[in-house]
Simulated scan of single mutants.
Amino acid sequence: MEGKTCCVTGHRDLPQKEINHVKTALRREIDSAVADGFTRFMSGFADGVDQYFAEIVLEKKKTNPALELIAVIPYQKRLDSLMAKGRTYEMLEACADVVVMQEEYHPSVYSHRNRYMVEHSDRVIAVYDGREKGGTVRTIRFAHQMKKVLREIPVGEIVLPGQPIAKRK
Results as ranks from 00 to 15, higher is better:
K77P: 00
P15L: 06
Q163C: 03
V118F: 06
Q163W: 13
L160W: 15
P74V: 00
I30Q: 02
N64A: 08
I56V: 06
G10R: 10
N64D: 14
M146L: 10
P15H: 12
S121N: 09
H106D: 08
A96V: 07
H106V: 13
T139L: 02
T139A: 04
A25Q: 15
V124K: 04
P107A: 09
R138A: 14
L14A: 06
S81Y: 07
E157G: 07
S121E: 07
N114L: 02
H112W: 06
N64R: 14
P65S: 12
N20G: 05
C95L: 05
P154T: 10
I165Y: 09
K85Y: 10
I153P: 13
N20M: 05
L14I: 11
I158V: 14
L150V: 15
E157T: 13
R27F: 04
A35Y: 09
F53E: 03
F38G: 02
S108H: 14
E103G: 07
H11M: 08
H106R: 15
N64K: 14
M117N: 04
E29L: 02
K17C: 05
E104V: 04
G135V: 07
V137L: 12
V155R: 04
I30L: 03
L92I: 13
K23N: 02
E119P: 00
V149K: 12
K4C: 04
N20F: 10
K23W: 02
K23M: 10
V100K: 09
E103D: 09
R12Q: 11
Q51D: 00
M117T: 10
K77Q: 12
M83P: 00
V124N: 02
V137G: 04
E68Q: 15
K167T: 02
D36Y: 09
I19L: 10
N20T: 08
E132W: 14
V98Q: 08
V72H: 09
A54K: 03
R78K: 11
I140N: 03
I56D: 01
G48R: 03
